[in-house]
Design a protein around this nucleic acid. Structure first.
Lengths: 238, 238
DNA sequence: AATAGACATATTGTAATATAATATGCTTTT
DNA sequence: AAAAGCATATTATATTACAATATGTCTATT
C-alpha cells in the first residue's frame, strides 16, 4: 500500500503478490485460496482486478477455479517453471543453493548442446555476437568499471541464440536467472577474471572454427567447474 | 493420465482462438490486435470475457496492452514456448517436420542427461515406474490391442521424473508433445516393436544398475536414430 | 517560424452491480 | 437406504460508468 514500486497495474501487482504467496507455500493444495470476494476485501480492490489476476495465475498453471468450488492451488508439478515470473517467485522463497544445483544440472544438459549446434549450424552474424561478448568480457576483466556480469550473460545467451533452435533460444531467461543466482554464490575473485574470459574465448573460437565436439566439451567443462564449486558449498553448509 | 475436461468456458475459448490466430501470424507485431471493443463485437461477448482472455495471453507472453495504445503482439522470441497451449498453437500452424527437428535437438540435450541423473540419483520407487513402463511396452509389442504409444510416453516421462530435478520433470509435456509429433511422422512398423521395446529395456537396466554413462549413451543413441530418420524425411520433402 | 504548453480524444484500467451457471450438500420422497 | 430435488455458495458473464494515460493537435508565446 504505502510504497509505490512499479509500472505494474493493479491486477499485475495482485498477480505478483498472490503468485509469490502460492509458491512460498502460504496456500496449500488442500486449503486452496480465499474466495474472490474475500480477496477483494483483503486487497481493497474490485472483483475485476482479482479475477484478472486469477486468470493470469491460471495461465501460468499455478491455480484453477471452478464455480461453487472456489480457487484451488494446482500441484507444483503443474506450475510452469519456465515462466520468468514463476521462476522469480520460486527463487524468492526457496533456499537458493539447492535450486542452483538444479539450475546447473539443466545448464549442463542445454548449453554444451547449444554450443555444438551453434558450431554446426550457426549463422556467421549470430556467431559474431558471441565474439563481441567475449571482447566485452576481456575488456571488463582489465577495466574494473566494466560489467563482467553483463558480458557473461551476453555470451551465454548469444550461444543459445546462435543454435538456431527456438527452444534453446527461449531458455535465455532461464539461463540468465541461473547465472544471476550463480553470481550471488560465487566469491568475486577478480584475479581470475582474465582466466575466465580466456575460457570463454576458447569456446567462441571452437564455434567460429566450426568444431562442434570441441565447443561442446569446452562448454561442458566450464559449467562442470561451477557445479563442482557449488556442490562443495552445499557440503559445507549442509 | 488423460483427465481432460474439454469443457472450456468463454474466456478460455477466446484465449484459444486468439492464441491460435496470433501464433499463426494472423496478427503481426506491427498491426497489433483489434481494440477490446472490436473484439467484443467480433465475438459477440462482453468486455469482461475479452479482457480475461487478453490477460491470459499476456501471461503467456504473446501480447501486451497499454492504455491509448491498444493490444500489441509481442515478438515471437518472448512467447513462452514451454507453455502447453502455446506449443499446441505452434504445432497447429507450423510445418511440423521442421518443428520436429527442433524438438529432437532439444530431446537430445535433455533426455540423455535425465537418464544419467536418474541412474545417479533416482529414488528406487521412481525407477520402478520406468520398469513398469518397459513392461507395458513389451506387452504392447506382443498384444496389438495394447497401446505402445502410451507406454512409450510413460517411459520417457518417468525418466524425467526420476531425475529428481524439477526442471527436467517439468519438460514432460514438452517431450510428450514431441513424441506425439514424432509418431505422426513415423511409419508404423509393428514388426520392429519388439526391438524398440528391447532398446528401451536396456536403458532401464542401465539406470537400475546405476550406470549413468551407459544410460546416457543408450538414450542418446535411441533419440539419434529418430533424428536421423527425420532428417532423411526432410531431405526427401525439401 | 519554432517551441512549449494546453487540450481533445481514444483506449485500456478499475469499479460496482446484476444475473446466470454450476457444483455441493442437505432434504425430501420413494 | 437410495434417488430425486432443492437450497446455497461460488465462480462465470454481462452491463455500465468513470478514471488513468498516452498520443496527436491546436494554441499561445517567444
Amino acid at each position: 500500500m504505502g510504497r509505490i514500486i512499479e509500472n505494474l497495474n493493479l491486477s499485475e501487482q495482485v498477480t505478483n503478490e498472490l503468485g509469490r504467496a502460492i509458491v512460498a507455500g502460504e496456500y496449500s493444495c488442500e486449503s486452496g485460496l480465499p474466495t474472490e470476494a474475500q480477496l477483494c476485501e483483503e486487497y481493497g480492490i474490485s472483483r475485476t482486478a482479482v479475477r484478472e489476476a486469477v486468470k493470469m495465475l491460471a495461465a501460468k498453471g499455478l491455480i484453477s477455479s471452478r464455480p461453487r468450488q472456489g480457487i484451488s492451488v494446482e500441484q507444483p508439478s503443474n506450475w510452469n517453471l519456465y515462466d520468468t515470473s514463476v521462476l522469480k517467485w520460486l527463487l524468492s522463497s526457496s533456499p537458493s543453493l539447492y535450486v542452483l544445483k538444479e539450475f546447473l544440472q539443466m545448464r549442463l544438459a542445454i548449453e554444451p548442446e547449444a554450443a555444438a549446434l551453434a558450431a554446426e549450424f550457426g549463422r556467421d552474424e549470430d556467431i559474431d555476437q558471441i565474439g563481441k561478448a567475449v571482447e566485452a568480457m576481456k575488456a571488463a576483466a582489465n577495466d574494473p568499471s566494466g560489467s563482467m556480469h553483463d558480458a557473461d550473460l551476453a555470451f551465454h545467451t548469444s550461444i543459445l541464440f546462435a543454435s538456431g533452435n527456438r527452444f534453446f533460444s527461449h531458455l535465455r531467461d532461464f539461463i540468465s536467472t541461473a547465472l544471476n543466482v550463480s553470481i550471488q554464490h560465487t566469491t568475486p575473485a577478480k584475479a581470475n577474471d582474465l582466466a575466465v574470459a580466456d575460457d570463454h574465448a576458447k569456446i567462441y573460437t571452437a564455434i567460429r572454427n566450426r568444431q562442434p565436439e570441441r565447443a561442446r566439451n569446452l562448454m561442458k567443462y566450464l559449467i562442470d567447474e561451477a557445479k563442482t564449486f557449488i556442490e562443495l558449498e552445499i557440503k559445507k553448509q549442509g
